[in-house]
C-alpha cells in the first residue's frame, strides 16, 4: 500500500509517516503543492493525506487534479479549518474523509485503513487478529469461529483496536473515536473504561486471549502478548 502525505509542517508529516510505516505502508511525503503535484503525476498511490493550506497552493486544487488522474485513490483531508463549508467542499470535489487538526494519529490510521478496506475490497474483506475475526460489512465478530454479540460501541471499539494493534491508544483518542468531541473527558473516560471492561469480558468468555492492556492510566494497548 502506498500512501502520500502532503503536509508542510515537517514534524507532523514525519509523525504520520512513522506511524504509517509501522503499519507496513509505504509512505512518502510532500511539503509543498509543487512537490505533491509532481508526485501524483509520476506515481500511483492508494491513498493520499492532504493538508488544505499549503504554502504555495490549495490542497483542494491538488485533489481536483488527482481525481482527474486516478479516480480510485483514496483521499483524506487534514485541515486546521473546522468549518462546515470546507468539509462539504472537500467531500464535494471527491475527498473521502475530513479530519480537523489536531487529530489523533491512531484516528487517522483507523480512517486510512477503513478507507482502503472500502476501496479495495468494497468492504467485503475480513479483519483477522489471531482467533478474532471481524466482518466489517456485516458488522459481525467471531472468536474461534463463534459469533460474539457486541454492542455498537463495543464493536466500534474493537474495530478501532484492530486498526491500531500493538500501539498505545490514549483514552482521549478512544473517547473521541466513539463519541466525537462533544462530551466531557471525565465522563467519557469512565465510559471508555466500562466499555473496554465489557468487551474484554465478552472476548474472554468466547475463549480469546486477553489482548487489552492498560498503560499507566494514559491509555490502552491491544496487541499480542
Amino acid at each position: 500500500m502506498k500512501v502520500l502525505v502532503v503536509e508542510d509542517e515537517r514534524g507532523l508529516a514525519e509523525s504520520i509517516t512513522d506511524y504509517m510505516t509501522k503499519e507496513e505502508y509505504i509512505c512518502e511525503t510532500a511539503a509543498t503543492f509543487r512537490e505533491a503535484d509532481e508526485k501524483i503525476h509520476l506515481y500511483q498511490y492508494d491513498c493520499i493525506i492532504v493538508d488544505l493550506t499549503l504554502p504555495d497552493g490549495s490542497g483542494l486544487h491538488l485533489i481536483q487534479t488527482l481525481k482527474q488522474l486516478v479516480a480510485t485513490t483514496g483521499i483524506i483531508i487534514i485541515s486546521a479549518r473546522n468549518s462546515l463549508e470546507d468539509k462539504l467542499k472537500g467531500l464535494e470535489i471527491g475527498s473521502d474523509d475530513y479530519l480537523t487538526k489536531p487529530f489523533h494519529l491512531s484516528e487517522l490510521n483507523a480512517r486510512v485503513k477503513s478507507l482502503l478496506r472500502r476501496r479495495q475490497f468494497g468492504g467485503h474483506n475480513e479483519l483477522r487478529f489471531h482467533e478474532i475475526t471481524v466482518v466489517p460489512h456485516a458488522r459481525r465478530v467471531y472468536v474461534n469461529e463463534q459469533l460474539t454479540t457486541l454492542s455498537r460501541k463495543e464493536y466500534d471499539l474493537l474495530l478501532y483496536f484492530l486498526s491500531n494493534t500493538d500501539v498505545v491508544l490514549t483514552k482521549a483518542s478512544i473517547a473521541e473515536h466513539l463519541w466525537g468531541d462533544n462530551i466531557d473527558s471525565a465522563d467519557s473516560f469512565d465510559m471508555v473504561y466500562s466499555h473496554i471492561k465489557n468487551l474484554r469480558r465478552k472476548l474472554l468468555d468466547k475463549g480469546a486471549a486477553d489482548y487489552v492492556q492498560s498503560v499507566y492510566g494514559i491509555g490502552y494497548k491491544f496487541g499480542s502478548l
Binding site: G11, L12, D18, T53, A80, P102, H104, V167, G219
Partner: peptide, 20 residues
Amino acid sequence: SHEMQTPLALINAKVEQLIQ
C-alpha cells in the same frame, strides 16, 4: 487560530509517538 491548530496537531502526534 488555524496556525495554532497545526502546532497542536504536532504536539498530539509527538505525544502519541512518545507513549509508544
